[in-house]
Amino acid sequence: MRYDPARPAGRLLLTPEDKEAPVRVRRLGQLGLGDRRDPDLDAYADRLAEVTGAPYAMVNFVGEYRQFFAGLHLPAVSPPVVVRPDGTTPVLGRELGRDHGFCPHVVVRRKALVLEDVSDYPRFAGNPVVDEFGVRSYLGAPLIDSTGTALGTVCVLDVAPRPWGRSGLETIKSSAAELVARIERREADGLPLL
């Protein structure tokens, strides 16, 4: 973990150190992923949201300094959960800093992460996405290819606590494995991603 004295009260940044980031960035470049929206991955995120019943779903590729949602599902109508002092509400876009969210933890740990209520976990409750976007629950799994590289994650989240349970964990893990197989098939055969 890194300490940032510029943060209020000397708060710890909870983003884990990621020594594999340079290798990941090179691999994502070889695959042509991680820096642009992909309609096939958007469709994949749409299906993942439908299967899990989550309002938000992402296919997220994690770089050295940022995360990029090449696949993104947002609810048709997103009620403002957080209202800033100036009256505006944050909008989730395609890119977030590496210190936001839970996916960088999944990539570094190389394991699925289930947070049914982030407020139950002090380590995660202080993450900027909790305050900025009102995220309350998260379910994500790493995308680990046959080279052993953790490319990113597939994940779903909600603005309310969610009992994901064992079935949610199995769904997100199998979704990650399925997507990696499709990515590698595309690489080997030149087939469309989905």
Rank of each mutant, 00 (worst) to 15 (best):
D158R: 04
R186N: 11
Y3A: 08
I172L: 06
R37Y: 12
P8H: 03
R136G: 11
K173N: 13
V107Q: 01
G32Q: 11
L28H: 06
T15L: 00
G71Y: 04
R166C: 01
L48S: 11
E187C: 02
L31T: 04
L92R: 07
A21W: 00
A21L: 00
P122L: 09
M58V: 15
L92S: 05
P163L: 06
G29D: 11
D86V: 04
L179E: 02
V154T: 06
V81T: 10
A112F: 09
A150N: 03
G97M: 04
G71R: 03
V130E: 13
A181C: 04
S78T: 11
D158W: 06
R162L: 03
A150W: 05
H100M: 12
G87Q: 03
V156C: 11
T147V: 12
V59Y: 06
R24P: 06
Y56Q: 08
F69A: 11
V129H: 12
A141V: 11
D131Y: 14
P85K: 08
S78M: 10
L12M: 05
V59I: 09
V91N: 04
R84T: 04
A160S: 13
V81S: 11
R66I: 00
R2V: 07
L139T: 12
G10H: 07
G152P: 04
M58I: 15
V156L: 03
L139I: 13
G190Q: 02
R166W: 03
P128T: 14
R94F: 09
Q67T: 02
R136W: 09
P16V: 00
D46P: 12
T89W: 07
P142Q: 08
E132K: 14
R24F: 05
D42L: 12
V106W: 02
A57V: 11
M58K: 10
S78F: 00
T171M: 14
V154N: 05
H105F: 00
M58Q: 15
Y56C: 11
Y65I: 08
Y56G: 11
A176M: 05
D131F: 14
D40F: 14
P192R: 05
A150H: 07
E64C: 04
D86R: 02
V25C: 00
T52S: 15
P142S: 09
K19C: 02
H73F: 08
G29P: 03
D131C: 12
Q30C: 08
Y65A: 15
A45M: 13
K173L: 13
L12T: 03
G165P: 02
A125S: 14
L115W: 08
D120C: 11
R182C: 04
Q67H: 06
K173I: 08
F102T: 02
Y138N: 10
P55K: 13
G190Y: 00
M58T: 15
V107H: 01
G63L: 14
R2E: 14
A9K: 04
G10I: 02
